[in-house]
Each structure stands twice: as C-alpha cells, then as structure tokens.
C-alpha cells in the first residue's frame, strides 16, 4: 500500500509552490499547470525509476516529455522539491536570463528531458526515446504528458501510429483531460469525442482515471508496464486550475493574471519560504 497521505502532502505543497511561482510573476498558465500537479507528484515520487537529482542525465533513468510545455511551472515546482535545483529559482520564472522559462527548455533546467512548447511535437520525441531504449535493450520507461487541446495537433496521431506499429510498450502517454482550451471547451473548439476509442483504434492500450486521485492513479500506472507490444495511454480526467477557486474549471484559466495577494489569501497568509 502506497503512502497516499504523503503524496497528498507533496501535491499540496507543489500546488502552493506553483501558484506562488506564477503569482510572483503576475501572469501564467495557471490552469494547465494546476491540473497536472497530482500526475507529476505520482510520477516523481512513485512511478519513475532511477532518477537522481544530482545526476539528472543518468543514462538509465526513466524520462518525461512534458509535451504541453506551457505547464512548465508545475514541473518546476516538483523538480525543485525533489532537489534538482534550488527552490529560490521558482522566484525567477520568465525573468530575463532565468533557468525557468514558461515553456520547458532542456538546455536551461536540470531535470527537463526535452524542450517543448510548440504543441504536438512531444509525443514524437517520446517515441524516438522509447524506440532508442528498445534499441539499447534497457528497461527505461518513457512518459509523455499531452494536453487535450494539444491532441488536436495531427502530429500526435502520426506518433500514435508509429508507437503501435513499432510495439513501443515502454511508452506511457498521459492525457491531461481537463476539457478546456483557450478558445472554449475542447468539445466546442474541435471535438475529441470518444478519446478512449480514438487511442484504442490506433493500437494503444488505454486506461482512464481521476487525475487528482492517487489511489486511482496507482491503479492505472500499475497496469501500464505489461510487455505486450502496446504503447499505453492514460486519460486522466482533471480539472483545469484545480485548487485555485477563482479560476477552477474556467476557460480563462489557461493563461491568466493572478496576484500574490490572492494567493496569500488562499493560503491564509502563509507564504513560501523561497519568496522571502
């Protein structure tokens, strides 16, 4: 039995760090960052193997492509808490010369495995990484988080075909299915319809879960390692801007102004240490 309480605590702290990180700048991709806090918490505390913050490029490590690169601040909060870089870096988000740009950059941030931000490209890179792991005959697992709006990019489906044609069963895709994007709800904008069927028909093994529930996350991740020649897709039902009531489940949460005052109010005056 995994320590869910510990994960809850970690996620709660990561969410707070992420909110202060964005609020300190005053604007950012709040919605899609907060919707993946539990997913990242689970990945970095329970799921990914051979991670070493003091050697972030260790060859046998599991790797993550955060294809929805605009959610960088969520991942930065988790990486800082895991010791990849000082917590104080969180105060530098998007400031000139920072190591923490809004979109993930592997050349700037320790622990970032791939540069992302041009939506739709991450899953292809993850396919290459997974293919490479099979060529090297190592046990690496490659994870890739894509957004639901991002799924509209056709390149995802090219990658989907490649992954199943090449039996990349060491590749685990994760869809942050928060159902909102910049111009409206995902169904209004494009219509993913039955996302589960789509991935299944592309030859992937598909799971679905509540992306904020650790017990649910554990159930699906534990089923994802079967060497059955199929890539895996976990569709995580999430809430955009989860944990920030003013923007929770709101379309405008995608990229929004937030102030330090309102974050302080949310946390009843409790301010993160790295901001002092």
């Amino acid at each position: 039995m995994k320590d869910f309480l510990k994960m809850e605590k970690f996620a709660s702290e990561a969410r707070k760090n992420c909110l202060y990180c964005i609020a300190n700048l005053g604007v950012g991709h709040v919605g899609g960052a907060l919707s993946i806090i539990e997913i990242l918490t689970y990945l970095y505390n329970e799921e990914m193997k051979n991670l070493n913050p003091s050697n972030p490029n260790a060859e046998d490590r599991d790797m993550l492509v955060l294809s929805k690169g605009h959610s960088g601040p969520a991942l930065y909060s988790v990486l800082a808490m895991k010791g990849y870089f000082p917590m104080a870096w969180l105060a530098t988000l998007n400031k000139g010369g920072t190591n923490l740009p809004s979109h993930c950059d592997r050349n700037r941030t320790p622990g970032i495995d791939m540069s992302t931000g041009s939506l739709g490209q991450g899953l292809s890179a993850a396919c290459g990484m997974a293919y490479g792991a099979l060529l090297k005959k190592n046990n690496q697992c490659i994870y890739c988080i894509i957004g639901d709006g991002e799924t509209e990019e056709g390149q995802n489906w090219e990658a989907a075909m490649f992954a199943s044609a090449n039996g990349l069963d060491n590749l685990i895709g994760i869809t942050d299915y928060n159902k909102l994007q910049i111009d409206g709800t995902v169904e209004e904008v494009s219509g993913l319809k039955d996302l589960e069927k789509k991935w299944t028909s592309f030859g992937w093994e598909v799971f679905s879960c509540n992306g904020h529930d650790f017990s649910d996350l554990e159930k699906v991740f534990s089923k994802c390692h079967e060497k059955n020649g199929k890539p895996k897709m976990i569709i995580c039902n999430t809430v955009k801007a989860k944990g920030f009531p003013r923007l929770e489940n709101k379309i405008e949460s995608h990229n929004s102004k937030i102030t330090l005052d309102e974050v302080k109010e949310l946390y009843k005056g409790e301010v993160v240490e790295w901001l002092n």
Partner: peptide
C-alpha cells in the same frame, strides 16, 4: 509522416 520522423530523430538523439 515527415514531421513525426524529425521528432523521432530528436528523441533518438536524446538517447
């Protein structure tokens, strides 16, 4: 799928 090919090449380079 040329776009995908270039992405896969990038992933292989990462490895």
């Amino acid at each position: 799928a040329e776009a995908n090919m270039v992405g896969i090449a990038s992933g292989l380079s990462l490895q």
